[in-house]
Structures are given as structure tokens and as C-alpha cells.
């Protein structure tokens, strides 16, 4: 019937998506893509804290830079490290307006220059056949920033994360419905994401994200950015064993192997044709007493310099010599 389409355009028009402030850790933990079924519906990545991310504002130190050629054209990949982990940012072949800037950034990185960047980006994710979800970003705007502005982003993102932690706690105590969350005081912009998060993720402790916040606030206030030891960070956190947190866990097994050896051994043992996923490698490294940062560094360096491992698909690794398929 004719009237319907009017109703549609009247109520379902979506304005510009707000750039969510989010740390690398919270985004990397996310595994819930939410793509509306309409043709022009924006796609989202829903984090455990209920952020519904279509667009994000992220910052960090440039940690790796790659230039790629593929059938669809040239693209760039940057890793930006914030206090909680790594943002993976791609400048796609379909975004040629950004290529001059990306080229410039890549060249600076190649020269050995390290600098802070701010990126406005769209979420993207990739799902493996067994249900693993890997998150990254497509850059829309990029600019090199100075330390004070990075500190400002840290503070702003800490605030945004605190707001989500608080909303998550309100939601946990409320009836699981739109009306229930609303009357519990969950902010309007978080209700939808919080409902999706509650339905998808198993229960989790928000402390891991609280540690991100504390580190970021300390950094923004110019205090020591030393990683807080879990004992001193929060005594009421017996189950701080979640491997995804940026805290260096007390080594359960002292390092009998170097971190590079663990990475290679893990891939060799775990590869059944598809490769081994990133998180599994990092997890295995933590079992051997290596921190997440060390594991990430090792993976990056093995991939870039030694050429011992390859990332044939985003987030999936193989040993070069065993790669015959």
C-alpha cells in the first residue's frame, strides 16, 4: 500500500553516526556484528559494554605500517597502540582520497619516525567459519596529533568507558527490556546496544575495562603509565585471569621458551589447514608467561621481518614453510 513508504522515510531515516570513543581493548573483545537487514542500514559492532559502534574516534601510537597491492587496488594498514592494546586500521582501495595522506604516513613510518595519530573510522569485522569474529577499522579521516591531544582523547575515552561501565551495571540490575533499562537510567543511546550485549555475551566482570580506564586517566594526568599490577589494582578481583586484559598476569609457568618460539610452536601445533587465529596465539603466549604486548610484538615482527609466519587472512596465521595450499 502506498502509505507505507512515507511512514518508512519519515521515521526510519538515520542521521550521521556518532564517532564512539572506545579503547582498543573493548573493541577487540567485541564479537557481535549487528547488521540491519535493510539495504542502507548501517552496520554496527556491539561491544560487551553495550557500545554500538558504526563509527569510532580512535588514537594511538603508530606501531606498524604496511602498504598492500591487491586486485582491487592499493591499500594501507596501520596498527595504532593505545594504553589498552592495538587498533587495526585499514585505508581501503575504495577510499583513494585518503591515499596521499596514508602514503605520507607510511613513508614517515618507514623512515623510522613514530608519532601519535587520531583516526575517525568505520567499524569492520570478519567472521571465520567457526564463528570467531575479528574486528578492525576502515579509516575515514586521519591526522597526526601531539601528545596533549592524545591525552585529551585518553581522558575523553576513559569518561565514555566509565559511562558504559555504569550503564552496564544499571542494566545488570534491571529487567531485560527496553522499558526496564530506560527506567533503570541506562542512557538512551546505550539501551539498544546493552540489550544486544546482554543477549549475546556471557556474563563478565567490568573490572578488566576499569583497568583500562585507570591507566588512561593516569596517563592523561601525566602520571606514571606503568602497567598496574593486578594485586594493587583491585583486590576484589579474584578472577582477573581473563587473558584479554592488558595487565601482565603473574607468570603461571616461567618462560621456558622465548615468545617467538611460542608463537611458532603454537601455529605449528594448531594449524589444521586454516591457520591459527590471533587470539589463540596470544592466549598460548600468556600461558607461557608472556604478556599480551610481547605476544603482539612477536607476531608482528615474525610476520614482517623474519617472514616466518604469514597472515593469509585477517587475524589468521600460518607458518611460511608449511604453507603449501
Amino acid at each position: 500500500m502506498g502509505g507505507g513508504s512515507l511512514t518508512m522515510s519519515g521515521t526510519m531515516r538515520v542521521g550521521r553516526q556518532t564517532a564512539i570513543r572506545v579503547f582498543a581493548h573493548e573493541y577487540r573483545d567485541a564479537s557481535l556484528p549487528d547488521q540491519g537487514s535493510g539495504e542502507y542500514d548501517p552496520g554496527y559492532m556491539v561491544t560487551r559494554l553495550g557500545a554500538k559502534i558504526n563509527r569510532a574516534l580512535i588514537c594511538g601510537l603508530i606501531d606498524s605500517s604496511e602498504k598492500r597491492e591487491s586486485d582491487s587496488g592499493q591499500s594501507y594498514r596501520f596498527n595504532l597502540r593505545d594504553v589498552t592494546g592495538i587498533h587495526r586500521v585499514e585505508v581501503s582501495p575504495f577510499n583513494p582520497e585518503l591515499h596521499p595522506e596514508a602514503e605520507e604516513i607510511h613513508a614517515r613510518f618507514e623512515r623510522g619516525d613514530r608519532f601519535l595519530m587520531m583516526v575517525v573510522a568505520k567499524q569492520r569485522s570478519f567472521q571465520t567459519e567457526d564463528g570467531g569474529v575479528f574486528t578492525s577499522y576502515n579509516a575515514q579521516e586521519m591526522t597526526v596529533i601531539d601528545k596533549p591531544r592524545y591525552a585529551e582523547w585518553l581522558a575523553e575515552t576513559a569518561e565514555a568507558t566509565l559511562r558504559r561501565i555504569n550503564a552496564h551495571e544499571l542494566a545488570m540490575a534491571a529487567e531485560q527490556s527496553m522499558a526496564g533499562f530506560r527506567s533503570a537510567g541506562v542512557p538512551e543511546d546505550l539501551i539498544d546496544g546493552m540489550l544486544l550485549s546482554r543477549a549475546h555475551y556471557p556474563p563478565f566482570e567490568t573490572e578488566v575495562y576499569m583497568l583500562d580506564v585507570l591507566q588512561a586517566l593516569n596517563a592523561a594526568l601525566g602520571r606514571s603509565v606503568e602497567i598496574v599490577k593486578p594485586e594493587s589494582a583491585d583486590e576484589s578481583e579474584p578472577d582477573s585471569t581473563v587473558p584479554d586484559q592488558p595487565v601482565e598476569a603473574p607468570s603461571p609457568a616461567t618462560s621456558d621458551m622465548s615468545v617467538e618460539e611460542v608463537v611458532v610452536a603454537t601455529i605449528a601445533a594448531g594449524d589444521r589447514g586454516e591457520g591459527v587465529d590471533y587470539d589463540a596465539i596470544v592466549r598460548q603466549c600468556s600461558v607461557h608467561g608472556h604478556s599480551r604486548e610481547e605476544a603482539e610484538d612477536a607476531i608482528d615482527s615474525l610476520r614482517a621481518d623474519g617472514g616466518q609466519i604469514s597472515e593469509h587472512r585477517f587475524g589468521w596465521f600460518r607458518l611460511i614453510q608449511s604453507d603449501s595450499s
Binding site: A155, A220, L221, G222
Partner: peptide, 16 residues
């Protein structure tokens, strides 16, 4: 950055 950080600390009662 300090102003924003302090405002966040006050608003959410963060203990550093």
C-alpha cells in the same frame, strides 16, 4: 586533558 580527566574522575567517583 587534565580538566577532562578530573571531570571524569569527579563524575564517576574514580579512585586512582
Amino acid at each position: 586533558p587534565e580538566g577532562i580527566a578530573k571531570a571524569a574522575i569527579d563524575r564517576w567517583g574514580v579512585v586512582l
